[in-house]
Simulated assay, not measured.
Amino acid sequence: MYDLHDIVEMKKPHPCGTNRWEIIRMGADIKIQCTGCQHIVMLPRREFDKKLKKILEKAEK
């Protein structure tokens, strides 16, 4: 399962060419930030679960 500050890969890459996102907020909605261009996207948790491909790096505790 994913957690705050994990690096995840989504099914579709971001238009900037990067497919690495950092989870920066969790709740009913999940806010992710592109590691390439720093663009922020907020998705409902159900939509995020559907679009998530895999977890690339777990955050340090």
Rank of each mutant, 00 (worst) to 15 (best):
23 I>F: 04
34 C>P: 04
9 E>F: 00
6 D>M: 09
49 D>I: 01
31 K>T: 15
23 I>W: 03
13 P>G: 10
14 H>D: 08
21 W>A: 12
9 E>P: 02
32 I>K: 02
2 Y>H: 08
43 L>N: 11
12 K>A: 09
7 I>T: 06
33 Q>W: 00
23 I>Y: 04
4 L>M: 15
37 C>V: 06
57 E>G: 03
47 E>R: 03
27 G>F: 13
52 L>G: 08
49 D>H: 11
53 K>H: 13
9 E>S: 02
21 W>D: 14
8 V>L: 10
25 R>W: 12
27 G>N: 13
53 K>Y: 13
14 H>V: 05
26 M>K: 15
42 M>P: 00
54 K>F: 08
53 K>M: 11
46 R>I: 11
7 I>F: 00
2 Y>P: 03
8 V>C: 10
39 H>T: 08
20 R>A: 09
42 M>W: 00
34 C>L: 07
59 A>T: 11
44 P>Y: 04
37 C>D: 12
52 L>T: 04
4 L>S: 12
35 T>F: 01
51 K>F: 14
33 Q>V: 05
31 K>D: 03
13 P>S: 14
28 A>H: 14
55 I>L: 05
52 L>K: 08
7 I>Y: 01
54 K>T: 13
29 D>V: 14
41 V>F: 12
59 A>Q: 09
6 D>K: 07
13 P>L: 09
9 E>I: 02
26 M>S: 15
18 T>W: 06
58 K>T: 01
31 K>P: 00
49 D>T: 02
8 V>D: 10
48 F>A: 09
49 D>P: 03
17 G>V: 05
5 H>R: 07
23 I>N: 07
58 K>D: 00
22 E>Y: 11
22 E>T: 13
58 K>E: 01
33 Q>Y: 00
29 D>L: 15
6 D>F: 08
35 T>R: 05
20 R>P: 01
53 K>N: 13
27 G>P: 07
37 C>Q: 02
35 T>V: 08
42 M>S: 11
28 A>M: 13
25 R>K: 15
44 P>L: 06
28 A>R: 15
55 I>G: 03
40 I>N: 15
7 I>M: 01
44 P>T: 09
11 K>W: 05
3 D>M: 09
20 R>G: 02
53 K>Q: 11
22 E>K: 13
19 N>W: 01
52 L>A: 05
11 K>C: 08
39 H>W: 01
40 I>R: 15
52 L>F: 07
56 L>T: 00
45 R>Y: 10
48 F>K: 06
51 K>W: 14
21 W>R: 10
11 K>A: 06
45 R>L: 13
36 G>T: 09
17 G>H: 06
18 T>A: 10
54 K>D: 08
60 E>C: 12
26 M>F: 13
15 P>M: 05
40 I>M: 15
